[in-house]
Design a protein around this nucleic acid. Structure first.
Lengths: 148, 148
DNA sequence: GTGATTGCAAACCTTTTGCACGCCA
DNA sequence: TGGCGTGCAAAAGGTTTGCAATCAC
């Protein structure tokens, strides 16, 4: 990611913290920077390992709590899992997930046909829908070994 | 659930076990019966509490392992969660989920428009899709207090 | 200054593993 | 009878909580 893009993200991060009355601490900045560069859907522990490289003194608890705080203010999403540790998604935009049941990878994809899914009236009248996502379970290319 | 319906389910349960070389033990039958009557998406512990009522001597481990075994042979689904313990779904048919972010309930719904979702070619050519589900996050009627 | 945040430690909960005994096929 | 399944116990892994010291504002 280009440094100018990072700067722009960092600026909106600062504004988001201000809006929610959160202090801008070096730990939070370090976690946020790591999120921007993260491989997809890291666990709290994976984030901890990454952040330690640039901020060796940080504790796991701080990383974990920071991620949960970021999730509360909408800076990251907590993604759906089928067991195991929580996983976080720095991409809060409209996209969908494929879960490989063999290796556990979660692969993002976007698809025109899935955007703006209509919510049935019976649901819309009773529930306030916050987010919509299509979740596919299957086997990824690495795990099928090319066999379809 | 009517007893005749239960009998029919039990019969297909027995066949399913036979097909997979699993023994028919009273514990497995008890767990399966409890599944048929279960409120939706119970955790292993919730199932344990229920099964104990009719089979007081059963251990938590057995209930848990039985549920995992059932999941492996497709008798139940493990449903997507956003953290916390695994949850099981006795309904393996085509349906979708609404997660209430306030109370944690997972509500099933069916919707014509979501059945037979097309899988984008870019995905279908690389991944073997096993299941498709729309996951909505939101607030249920109990948690909005009627306010939409 | 002061209240939020951090780091550390302990507790808690869920899941996993190992093993001896018992039971289904 | 043989081997799978069960129950018990211990361990592992992840998350949550409490608290004193520290830091951003």
């Amino acid at each position: 990611m280009h440094s100018s893009v990072i700067d722009r993200h960092l600026q909106s991060f600062v504004e988001s913290c201000r809006r929610h009355g959160l202090k801008i601490t070096p730990q939070r900045v370090a976690v946020y920077r790591a999120l921007l560069e993260s491989d997809q859907h890291p666990t709290a522990d994976a984030m901890f390992q990454t952040v330690k490289l640039t901020y060796p003194h940080i504790s796991f608890d701080t990383v974990n709590r920071t991620l949960l705080t970021f999730a509360e203010i909408g800076l990251v999403d907590v993604v759906e899992v089928f067991g195991g540790p929580k996983r976080f998604d720095p991409d809060t935009g409209d996209h969908h997930h494929l879960h490989c049941v063999a290796c556990g990878r979660i692969i993002d994809f976007i698809h025109e046909g899935y955007n703006g899914l209509d919510v049935p009236d019976a649901i819309a009248s009773k529930f306030k829908v916050i987010s919509k996502r299509v979740v596919l379970k299957g086997l990824c290319d690495k795990c099928t070994g090319g066999r379809p």
